[in-house]
Structures are given as structure tokens and as C-alpha cells.
Amino acid sequence: MNTKYYIKSFCQIKDNKISLNKSVIYKNEDTLDFLDFIKTAYRSFEINYPKFFKMDGLSKLAFLASEVLLSREKINTEEENNIAIVFSNKSSSLDTDKKHQESIQDKDNYYPSPAVFVYTLPNICIGEISIKYKLHSENSFFIFDSFNAEYLLEYTKSLLSTNKAKEVLCGWVEFNGIEYEAFLYLVSKEGTIAHTKQEIIKLYNT
């Protein structure tokens, strides 16, 4: 119970910028909507993962933010990597929910898409990341009014102190169809930033 945990790395995606540990690693000055922005960013990182194009907006956002953090971890997918994923947001999968709803609004002539419907759950993005890195780990998706550092902190501490996870990838991934914001951080025994409510809020607000 006395083990100290740290924030090993953190990533933010907002305002057409992607940053890692406060340094901007990608930015796009053009006026792009979210889907164009995230695709351009994906291209710039040279990630070869065709499934990306099948994902909905929320999954693309969560996937890319996770990619920024996890690609540095040199994860060997042949080995056990017990990194839990704990995400949260305000809008759940509402953008995709609206797409599915639109597709069934005309009752006499509708063809709802299974590829849309499958993304009408917020935790699908956790599944996408788990598949990419072969993470057979603990998952949870929470919905809050706004970023809730305390609930995330305590849940993460619980997973680590009970050995349910060795590290936890957690944070906020919000996409409502127009606005987007990702703030993910990796909690570990290694690192220099203390895993405390104050630090999490400070990082979130930078």
C-alpha cells in the first residue's frame, strides 16, 4: 500500500495541437474539422494501422492519444503487459449515437449500419487500444459532467495497490461531433511527477 506512483508521461490533444509532456509534437495551422485534423495527424505519425480509418471520432481521438504514450513504451505484444485503461468523458458516444439515430429516423426506408452501431458504446475505444497492444487488462469507462481528477485518481490507486494492474493509462477523451479534447496520462512506479489530485489538475489545465 505504501508504493509510490508517478505520472510517467502525459498527452494532450486539443486546439489542433498534440503535445507530449507539455511539448507540442504536432500542430496544424489550417482550419480543419476534427476528422480532417485527426487524420492528418495520424498520417504525420506514420502509424500503419488501416483499422484507424474504420473507427468513429471518439475512437480515433483515444487511439491517437494512446499511441503517443504507448508507442514510447516499446511494448512487446508477445509478453504480458498489464496496463489497465480507465477513460472518462462527458458525451459518451453521442456523436455516433446521433448518426445511428439519423439512419433510422425514416421508418419506411432505412438501412442502419452495423459498422456505425458498434461504436455507439464509449468503451469501444478501449477495445481498439487493447487490440493494438494486446492488453488483456482491466477496463472502465466513466461519464462525468467535466474532468474529475479525484474519481480517476482513487480508481487508479485502487487498481495499482491491489495488483490488478502494473500501470494505468487513464484520463479524458471527449468528442461531441464538433469539439474534442484528449488528456491521457500513464501512471506507473516510474516517473517524476507525483500521482496526486493537485498534479493531475495542474497537468490537465496546462
Binding site: N148, E154, Y155
Partner: peptide, 25 residues
């Protein structure tokens, strides 16, 4: 503030685990 858990079809049983974890914390 309510903790809303939306984790597909495990949400209901996962919530028991989550409640236990918050109490233990």
C-alpha cells in the same frame, strides 16, 4: 457527483467491483 459507468454489457456487474474499490479506497 454520480459516477456513471458505461462499459457495454458488463456495466452492471462491473459497477459492483467499482463500488467495492471506492469503499476500499
Amino acid at each position: 457527483e454520480a459516477i456513471v459507468v458505461s462499459n457495454a454489457c458488463v456495466s452492471g456487474v462491473l459497477s459492483i467491483a467499482i463500488a467495492k474499490r471506492y469503499i476500499n479506497q
